[in-house]
Design a protein around this nucleic acid. Structure first.
Lengths: 340, 340
DNA sequence: CTGAAAGCGCTTACAG
DNA sequence: CTGAAAGCGCTTACAG
């Protein structure tokens, strides 16, 4: 069974290749009857047009790329990524786009070379970008490479972004968390953030401070790196710091750090939530299973991924640059901030 | 800057397209000097050959596919998949192959259609298969489609597999677990497995029974579905069963079920490990963080993924069908089986 | 070692 | 609405 081609179908049906192509692609130029005959034959033969031939003649790869550039260890334990991936993939599949996935370590050079190569080879039609950095070199790079992209989870920008992306109101999320803690009676809180190199962490830090100020609360900021140990060590450092600054609640930038923090509290003989309450900026099974279970912000990674992918599809289709703001995240209140 | 092509490079260098192609692909037919000039120019121009043109003329996509067909919720919370994915991707990247990822629900029809389409379109050169089933229709399907594949985590087969794959000695893993429990003094254990539809679960069940028999231990098998709640409910059912069959240790088929089991024990007022010890067939952060922390089998998903990908690369390259058996997994002993 | 040419399997003006 | 033809950018015998 030699591989069928469009020429083969045309011959079988006694029509031209062009007609087969038009029929296949839902374009005008063929009668309904002919179209049906083509479609039926393709289905009967279980035949699909060659994606590489199509890509070559259309100058369109039919795929979008995604580089996961975090520490593989972190990625593996961060349910956030998988949830997002599922959402992205679902949206892309609906838009008939394949997902090309590349995992590189925390190596910016590798990520850059991947984009250069993808662009040069025409391997993908666009890419999804995460974790917007200060002076992020990637947007300029991708522009230069002519590779369309969507930026996921960018802060709500005052500076009129010249690119597509989903935006999250991190200040609103911060307010949700801070207000919850205020309501629970906390007046001094610590905020263990992820690296400030990420724009969203800057925004969160600012948001927490602003909201705390508004409620007459004090905030101790602390920069960490999302790892379990980082959360642990941050708590140890905080507790061993000057007593007069002791916080009664700690907000962690992700679920892993929250878990590390919980371990540290236990080691230090502090009880949660009685001595120190805990909130995680990401929800996950870890938060649900921990004891005490951890109050967490549900950011709906699946939905966020889906929307980002849809923006990219739209960008590729129509060239429309647009931003979509994500709905405010919901706080899932659990035992770690329970009123005594 | 019009997109460069091989013809452009040839003209710039005053040589033929063929020479450029030979130079690029490390094939004989060009002088070293010419080769260098071509390579240097390509690098200077930051130029890469079009992947679709290459794919079309070579009849090779330069990508392999992977369908994740488990429940998205499960995938998101199962660190096993991400670890494996990282290993796979690393190996593929080294072999200059792209990874095409597709996530479908627990819908066999969707998975099948994905393969049909990938094969028909020539979108991927091969696929990676997981979770070998009883009477698995996929190998025959892929053979019919002419899509090379590697089966990951197949049991050590007596029946001379006609296909490439990594094999795991599940009986040996079972022995590791059972012997550990025997040593800890347990004589009656329960084994909450995943679905028996998976060959590896059958093997594990058999292995546990064999090893238990050898040590004069009794086993209560229980089939579940890997979900958190399934682990929970299984424990409840076991505990509420006939008293004379009460087990002093429970082996869970994965980490999620172990967590569910732990929750159930707590609800039932049973202490772990004092009343009931727990072992998980997969290690993960969950096992490390749970209280008590859970003794678990470390199966090294990253390495397994890497090997599976390497087998696929070899298969695509040379057509060599081979199996590679994975090293025996290591048991990470933690509090859930600690001697009192 | 090099050049001219056919071919991979589609898409898309263009003329009828 | 249909057919003949060029073109997408490579690879690969083939003849020199």
């Amino acid at each position: 069974m030699a591989k069928e081609t469009i020429a083969g179908l045309a011959k079988r049906l006694g029509i031209s290749k062009a007609s087969v192509s038009y029929a296949l692609n839902g374009q005008p130029g063929v009668s309904e009857l002919t179209r049906r005959r083509v479609l039926d034959l393709a289905e009967e033969l279980e035949w699909y047009p060659s994606s590489s031939a199509r890509a070559l003649s259309r100058s369109r790869a039919g795929a979008v790329g995604m580089v996961l550039s975090a520490d593989p260890l972190l990625i593996g334990t961060e349910p956030y990524y998988m949830g997002m991936l599922a959402g992205i993939e679902a949206a892309l599949a609906e838009g008939d786009m394949a997902l090309m996935l590349r995992m590189v370590g925390k190596d910016p050079a590798q990520e850059r070379r991947t984009y250069e190569r993808w662009a040069g080879e025409g391997k993908v039609d666009g890419v999804l970008l995460f974790d917007h950095l200060h002076d992020d070199p990637r947007p300029a790079l991708l522009d230069r490479l002519g590779l369309p992209f969507v930026l996921h989870g960018a802060p709500e920008a005052e500076w009129g972004t010249p690119f597509s992306g989903t935006t999250t109101d991190h200040a609103a999320d911060a307010a949700t968390i801070v207000e919850h803690l205020h309501q629970r009676g906390h007046r001094r809180i610590a905020h263990i953030s992820g690296p400030r190199a990420f724009l969203h962490e800057e925004e969160r830090i600012r948001g927490v401070r602003t909201s705390a100020d508004a409620h007459g609360m004090e905030v101790v900021p602390f920069e960490a790196d999302y790892a379990l140990d980082a959360g642990h060590d941050a708590v140890v450092a905080l507790v061993q710091g000057p007593v007069h600054r002791a916080a009664t609640a700690v907000v962690f930038g992700n679920d892993l750090m929250s878990m590390g923090g919980l371990l540290a509290l236990r080691e230090l003989g502090l009880r949660c939530p009685d001595d120190v309450a805990v909130v995680s900026w990401d929800d996950s099974l870890h938060c649900r299973l921990a004891s005490p279970s951890v109050t967490a912000l549900f950011r709906n990674p699946g939905m966020q991924g889906r929307v980002a992918a849809e923006l990219l599809l739209a960008l590729l289709d129509t060239g429309d640059i647009q931003t979509r703001s994500m709905p405010r995240s919901e706080l899932v209140v659990r035992a770690s901030t329970a009123p005594d």
